Computed example of a mutant assay.
Amino acid sequence: MSEPTRLSKRLVEQLGCSRREAELYIEGGWVTVDGVVVEQPQFKVEQQSVALLPGARAETLEPVTLLLNQPAGQDTESARVSMGMDSLSEAHREGVRALHGHFARQACVAPLEPGASGLQVFTQDWRVTRKVNADLRRLEQEFVVQVRGEASPQALERLARGVMRNDRELPKAKASWQNETHLRLVLKNPQPGQISELCAYLRLELLGMRRIRLGGVSMGKLPLGQWRYVAATERF
């Protein structure tokens, strides 16, 4: 009986490739062990069948950006850790190759304020981080806010011109009723507490807030607690 050996070593022996190429094939999800994709180069194999999938490329993984529909009350680190193969939205699985390497070194950009739910953005791509951070003051953010109370159309219109509360200027916001209990708010770079202050100005009690868009990227129909990849065609 042969001794267990690292999957990367077995691949080197089979293909005559370098160790680094073997690791790239494995981490890229191109290698199967008895027909099952294994992405860990250190995985130990014995007599199992090791094969390379068609179209395999020994290339470094391209960085990806992920969108999570984060539940209220979940902190950013718990949200990051919650993303895995099993929480990828069923509606967004077609045509994507979900890999374990996509969850490594994910950083949150434009984080939600504590207590908010909805669209949370994580990225491995320094270009996305740089662009979002540089443009954050100009990027529209859209929220659906659950409230209790009534506010007139005239009061909502005043938000678009800018209002003061407790001698502080609040951010301009486009506001409209989605239904009797939910208000749609669009504003730029809201700071923690400012949406609550806007609601207080309108004499509405804030019950909850959910972000649904950041710049040009909308969350879409993403179930709570699930995530999807940002498509190459989407731009913040």
Results as ranks from 00 to 15, higher is better:
residue 39 E to Y: 08
residue 41 P to S: 03
residue 41 P to C: 06
residue 41 P to W: 03
residue 41 P to E: 08
residue 43 F to D: 02
residue 43 F to N: 05
residue 45 V to N: 05
residue 45 V to H: 11
residue 45 V to W: 12
residue 48 Q to F: 05
residue 48 Q to N: 03
residue 49 S to D: 03
residue 49 S to H: 02
residue 50 V to T: 03
residue 51 A to R: 11
residue 52 L to K: 00
residue 53 L to C: 03
residue 53 L to Y: 02
residue 54 P to T: 06
residue 56 A to Q: 04
residue 58 A to H: 05
residue 58 A to L: 02
residue 58 A to P: 02
residue 59 E to F: 03
residue 59 E to L: 12
residue 62 E to P: 06
residue 62 E to Q: 12
residue 63 P to G: 05
residue 63 P to R: 11
residue 66 L to P: 11
residue 66 L to I: 14
residue 67 L to F: 08
residue 67 L to K: 02
residue 69 N to I: 03
residue 69 N to P: 04
residue 70 Q to F: 00
residue 72 A to I: 10
residue 72 A to S: 07
residue 74 Q to F: 09
residue 75 D to K: 02
residue 76 T to A: 06
residue 79 A to P: 04
residue 80 R to M: 08
residue 80 R to G: 05
residue 81 V to P: 02
residue 81 V to Q: 15
residue 82 S to W: 12
residue 84 G to Y: 00
residue 85 M to T: 12
residue 85 M to S: 06
residue 87 S to V: 05
residue 91 A to W: 14
residue 91 A to N: 14
residue 91 A to V: 09
residue 92 H to D: 15
residue 92 H to S: 06
residue 95 G to L: 06
residue 95 G to K: 01
residue 95 G to S: 07
residue 99 L to P: 01
residue 100 H to T: 08
residue 100 H to G: 13
residue 102 H to L: 01
residue 103 F to L: 14
residue 107 A to N: 12
residue 109 V to C: 10
residue 109 V to K: 10
residue 110 A to G: 14
residue 111 P to I: 15
residue 111 P to L: 12
residue 111 P to H: 14
residue 112 L to I: 05
residue 115 G to C: 09
residue 116 A to D: 14
residue 117 S to P: 10
residue 118 G to P: 04
residue 119 L to I: 08
residue 121 V to F: 05
residue 121 V to D: 05
residue 122 F to R: 11
residue 122 F to A: 14
residue 122 F to T: 15
residue 125 D to W: 05
residue 125 D to N: 09
residue 126 W to H: 13
residue 126 W to E: 10
residue 127 R to P: 06
residue 129 T to F: 05
residue 131 K to R: 14
residue 132 V to M: 13
residue 133 N to I: 00
residue 136 L to E: 13
residue 137 R to F: 10
residue 137 R to T: 11
residue 140 E to C: 04
residue 144 V to H: 08
